[in-house]
Amino acid sequence: MLIDPPPGEYRAYLFDCDGTVADSMPLHYDAWRQALAEWGCAFPEELFYAWGGRPVADIIASLNGMNGLTMPVARVARRREELFQRMLPRIRAVPEALEHIEDAYGRVPFAVVSGSTRESVTASLTVLGLLDRFEVLVCAGDYARPKPHPEAFLRAAELLGVAPEHCLVFEDTDLGIRAATAAGMNSVRIPQHRPAPPPLPAA
């Protein structure tokens, strides 16, 4: 069943990718955990989800600062991407976003606005068979200021030729919702599909 958006005259849909279109967040976390373990760096799951939407390089730099480490940003990012790519056959679409894509495709143009690399976004959408649905991809490296700054969403609106007030954003993170609001856009919150915690041991 479609999630009802706020009232408005929408001429473009802007989607986050990971956790919104692609149910990829658990896979990304596995890739992060494995890549960082090679450097003796922990990444608590709650922090990973709290930082959803941040670019990879920013996350590595922040982890370095928090843990007193000097992990090489580019090297760790490449390793994380390599591990994620191996997991891609397990990826699935998020039903709530897929329904909107199938319902509105051909009526309004779509863009992806992501903190992930273009390589990662393209790979995920290709596996899902959705890459051709999106006229515009705005990914890490295409903007200077990441979410919650509105720059990435405003860039997507500009590329689509649609005024911000006529764009509807689909997001799963607080950072993304804040960025959409700062851009003057209405938004739909996609519920996060997080793995269930392991059962408690028997008493």
Results as ranks from 00 to 15, higher is better:
residue 9 E to Y: 03
residue 9 E to G: 01
residue 13 Y to Q: 04
residue 15 F to P: 05
residue 17 C to A: 14
residue 18 D to R: 12
residue 20 T to R: 13
residue 20 T to M: 09
residue 21 V to F: 08
residue 23 D to Y: 10
residue 23 D to E: 15
residue 26 P to Y: 06
residue 27 L to Y: 07
residue 30 D to Y: 02
residue 32 W to G: 04
residue 33 R to Y: 03
residue 33 R to A: 09
residue 35 A to L: 03
residue 37 A to M: 05
residue 40 G to M: 02
residue 41 C to T: 04
residue 47 L to C: 01
residue 48 F to P: 04
residue 50 A to K: 13
residue 51 W to M: 15
residue 51 W to Y: 08
residue 51 W to V: 02
residue 51 W to S: 13
residue 52 G to K: 11
residue 54 R to P: 02
residue 56 V to R: 10
residue 58 D to P: 00
residue 62 S to Q: 13
residue 63 L to G: 10
residue 64 N to S: 12
residue 65 G to E: 15
residue 65 G to C: 00
residue 66 M to H: 07
residue 73 V to A: 03
residue 76 V to D: 01
residue 78 R to G: 07
residue 79 R to G: 04
residue 81 E to Y: 03
residue 81 E to C: 00
residue 88 L to M: 06
residue 88 L to K: 00
residue 91 I to N: 13
residue 92 R to H: 10
residue 93 A to I: 05
residue 93 A to Q: 07
residue 94 V to P: 07
residue 96 E to G: 06
residue 101 I to W: 04
residue 105 Y to M: 02
residue 105 Y to A: 15
residue 106 G to T: 04
residue 110 F to R: 12
residue 111 A to N: 11
residue 117 T to W: 04
residue 119 E to K: 02
residue 122 T to A: 15
residue 124 S to R: 01
residue 125 L to W: 11
residue 126 T to F: 00
residue 127 V to M: 11
residue 127 V to E: 12
residue 130 L to V: 01
residue 134 F to P: 01
residue 135 E to V: 04
residue 135 E to D: 14
residue 138 V to S: 03
residue 139 C to E: 05
residue 145 R to I: 00
residue 146 P to Y: 06
residue 151 E to R: 13
residue 152 A to M: 06
residue 156 A to H: 14
residue 159 L to V: 05
residue 160 L to T: 06
residue 163 A to G: 01
residue 164 P to V: 04
residue 167 C to H: 11
residue 169 V to W: 00
residue 170 F to P: 05
residue 170 F to I: 02
residue 171 E to H: 09
residue 174 D to V: 15
residue 175 L to W: 00
residue 176 G to E: 01
residue 177 I to L: 14
residue 177 I to D: 00
residue 179 A to G: 11
residue 190 I to D: 02
residue 190 I to A: 08
residue 191 P to K: 08
residue 192 Q to D: 05
residue 193 H to P: 00
residue 193 H to D: 04
residue 193 H to G: 07
residue 203 A to M: 07
